[in-house]
């Protein structure tokens, strides 16, 4: 695997292999020395055109634990704000001899362009592009699901037969897209719940079941419910009447949480709008794995960086 651009082009064996490597990375958390020398001498650029402190920090922690040299490049205070094109920036980084780029961009497809335009020839990791994909988030969600379901027995496993409900702004969510493809590849049954205004056209061709009733979807006692963040700019664009109504129909309210069985875990990619898509009671509940998702993010990103940056031929050696 040279790049990680999307979960749609990730095959099952590669996905499971990344999750298994992440398991070994997780073991590192219990040691005194939380650092591995695998990427010593490699320079990784975190190219962030969009503010995202939590994702950047997660990648940075992953890079540092693998002993890579890290350069943070954010659109603010760089030549990007002076109007330098993505192409010029990419060619500049290439000329500096860097080894990999982790890119977050508000334009869908920007990582794809970096990987395939010929502007630079290094592994590209997509850290979220527009409303397209956020593959490392989906991998860490899958890792967290596997851990929650199988505990110490997770190694080598997919998510076959698990029932996962994804709720919210599917239309604009890169997290939802990446999760839908990856969960399907790993064998889970995915139900998406969204108002019709926030449902992507053509979703009937996707490997999901669509529902417009959160109560119906939760009635079926799924293994996990994944709440998506509602962006504030959607409030003004008539996708739904107002925040109160969104919470009432599409939010994991305290009442809905209380009806939920203990076997359903609660996920959220963060940052949360408490009281909007998720109530505080649900977010802080025993079956919430929201903080575990954050923890696992570092391990999964270590596994991804290790996978794209090592190896001469890009295939997995057993």
């Amino acid at each position: 695997m040279k790049h990680l651009l999307s979960t749609r082009d990730l095959d099952r064996a590669t996905a499971i292999s990344i999750l298994d490597v992440a398991l070994d990375m997780a073991a590192l958390g219990t040691r005194d020395v939380k650092k591995l020398p695998a990427l010593r001498g490699k320079t990784i650029v975190n190219l962030f055109y969009e503010d995202s402190t939590r994702t950047r920090i997660s990648f940075e922690a992953a890079e540092k634990r693998l002993s890579a040299d890290v350069i943070n490049f954010s659109a603010k205070g760089s030549s990007v704000s002076k109007g330098e094109s993505l192409k010029d920036t990419a060619q500049t980084l290439d000329a500096m001899g860097i080894d990999a780029v982790v890119v977050r961009h508000s334009s869908s497809g920007a990582p794809h362009l970096l990987a395939h335009s010929g502007w630079l020839d290094v592994p590209i990791v997509n850290a979220g592009d527009g409303t397209h994909e956020h593959p490392t988030q989906a991998l860490l969600d899958a890792f967290t699901l596997r851990e929650s379901m199988f505990d110490d027995d997770a190694r080598g496993k997919g998510l076959d037969g698990l029932n996962i409900v994804i709720v919210g702004d599917i239309l604009h969510s890169r997290v939802a897209r990446s999760n839908i493809w990856l969960l399907a590849t790993l064998g889970a049954n995915v139900t998406v719940v969204a108002p019709p205004t926030l449902t992507p056209p053509g979703i009937e061709t996707w490997p999901v079941r669509l529902s417009h009733s959160l109560d119906d979807a939760l009635e079926a006692a799924p293994d996990a419910v994944m709440m998506l963040r509602i962006q504030s700019e959607r409030m003004k664009a008539a996708f739904f009447p107002n925040a109160r109504e969104y919470a009432k129909f599409w939010g994991l309210t305290a009442a809905r949480y209380r009806k939920l069985g203990e076997s359903t875990i609660i996920m959220h990619p963060g940052p949360m709008n408490r009281g909007l898509e998720i109530s505080g009671e649900a977010a802080d509940s025993p079956q919430s794995v929201i903080l575990k998702q954050v923890t696992n993010g570092v391990f999964v990103r270590m596994a991804v960086l290790f996978t794209v940056l090592t190896g001469a031929k890009g295939d997995v050696h057993e």
């Binding site: 695997m1 298994d20 070994d24 020398p37 695998a38 190694r155 190896g311 031929k313 050696h317």
Partner: peptide
């Protein structure tokens, strides 16, 4: 993760 041939050989799966 401590090998010195990570970049020259095919990617290795890690172990526990």
């Amino acid at each position: 993760m401590y090998r010195d041939d990570l970049m020259s050989n095919p990617t290795r799966a890690t172990a526990q």
